[in-house]
């Protein structure tokens, strides 16, 4: 039975598990999944972070035979999963501070080494604020020492837990509580921001990847690959936030897919500082469709703000070239 699966038969990148061979199915499709982030937590409807974390952690749990410890930065993920005495974590889990998850993970990993527990692995995780801003020093230190930690950043592009303020991962033009759409240049500034996957690569660490909640097969594969390696690894997962973005909860997956398809969120992998692969786009979409579904970008469509739309399209076009996202002719199966 080697009937070829046509991935695009639904008109999207969505692949129904039932169409796949057993070994290709997601960890989530398995009855043996660990449910490391269990149900009953307090995430909002349509939360991309909860979905991303569930897939990422369960994939890491499978890859390590459940010998996994998680270190969490302060943020939505921490708050919605664990007010004492309740916890959604069916795994050893520690939260210390907003800005030190990477360093705490270094310490946990050091303890495993000194105790001779080679099989016990460590992940650190946080949102974009806890990673690209306040946790950046500790993150860079962990990369620099090449500590045996996988750091996962769930990137929803602002400080959502405190009420949607700008972070260094907030895209240009976006409305946040600290970049309001008023004045001649509404929303977040163009020409600012921090691409932490690229900064991570500059450390020369074994593995860096971007992922997204619209392609959970790819996400699981990248986490599994990361856990097959030792040393410092980094994955930044694109996780839409309906509350912060002003989007419909039912559109979270769609928005993640659209961000990738227009080039604003390039999916790529890198090893030891060199890009090794990127997810190709058959026909890049324009950014308008992605932006229109979010109230944080609503001002961009008002007369007089055309330059913002052009600026955003230019960013997407630049990504398409930089990360080699265009599918070459003849690549199609």
């Amino acid at each position: 039975m080697t009937q070829q699966v046509k991935y695009y038969q639904t008109g999207t990148y969505t692949v129904g598990n039932r169409l796949l061979d057993q070994e290709q199915r997601t960890v989530q499709a398995s009855l043996d999944r660990s449910n490391a982030l269990d149900s009953g937590h307090r995430a909002c409807q349509g939360c991309g972070e909860a979905l991303g974390a569930r897939f990422a952690i369960d994939a890491a749990m499978r890859a390590t035979d459940n010998q996994l410890i998680a270190c969490n930065a302060t943020g939505c993920l921490e708050v919605f999963t664990t007010p004492y005495p309740e916890t959604a974590w069916q795994m050893p889990w520690i939260h210390s501070l907003f800005g030190n998850a990477a360093a705490v993970a270094t310490g946990v990993a050091a303890a495993q080494r000194v105790k001779g527990k080679k099989e016990v692995r460590v992940i650190a995780q946080g949102g974009d604020g806890g990673t690209t801003d306040i946790g950046f020093g500790c993150l860079s230190g962990m990369f620099d020492r090449n500590d045996d930690v996988l750091y996962i950043c769930y990137d929803n592009q602002a400080y959502m837990n405190t009420g949607v303020q700008r972070s260094s991962a907030t895209p240009p033009a976006a409305r946040t509580a600290t970049t309001m759409p008023v004045g001649p240049n509404p929303g977040n500034e163009f020409g600012q921001g921090k691409n932490v996957p690229l900064v991570a690569m500059a450390h020369g660490i074994p593995y860096v990847a971007t992922a997204s909640v619209h392609d959970l097969h790819d996400l699981e594969r990248k986490v599994t690959k990361a856990m097959s390696m030792r040393g410092a690894r980094y994955i930044q997962i694109f996780v839409p936030c309906p509350l912060g973005w002003g989007s419909k909860p039912c559109d979270s997956i769609k928005l993640a897919r659209m961000a990738a398809e227009c080039g604003l969120w390039p999916l790529f992998e890198a090893e030891h500082g060199e890009i090794t692969d990127s997810t190709k786009l058959r026909k890049p979409a324009k950014v308008d469709g992605y932006l229109k579904l979010q109230r944080r970008f609503a001002h961009m469509f008002k007369p007089g703000n055309e330059a913002q739309l052009e600026g955003m399209q230019a960013l997407a076009d630049k990504n398409i070239v930089k990360f080699d996202l265009l599918e070459e002719k003849g690549d199609e199966e």
Binding site: I94, N100, A103, V104, G107, V108
Partner: peptide, 10 residues
């Protein structure tokens, strides 16, 4: 912070 992690891990 590293100390917090290592101490929490025993």
């Amino acid at each position: 912070s590293v100390g917090i992690g290592s101490s929490a891990a025993g």
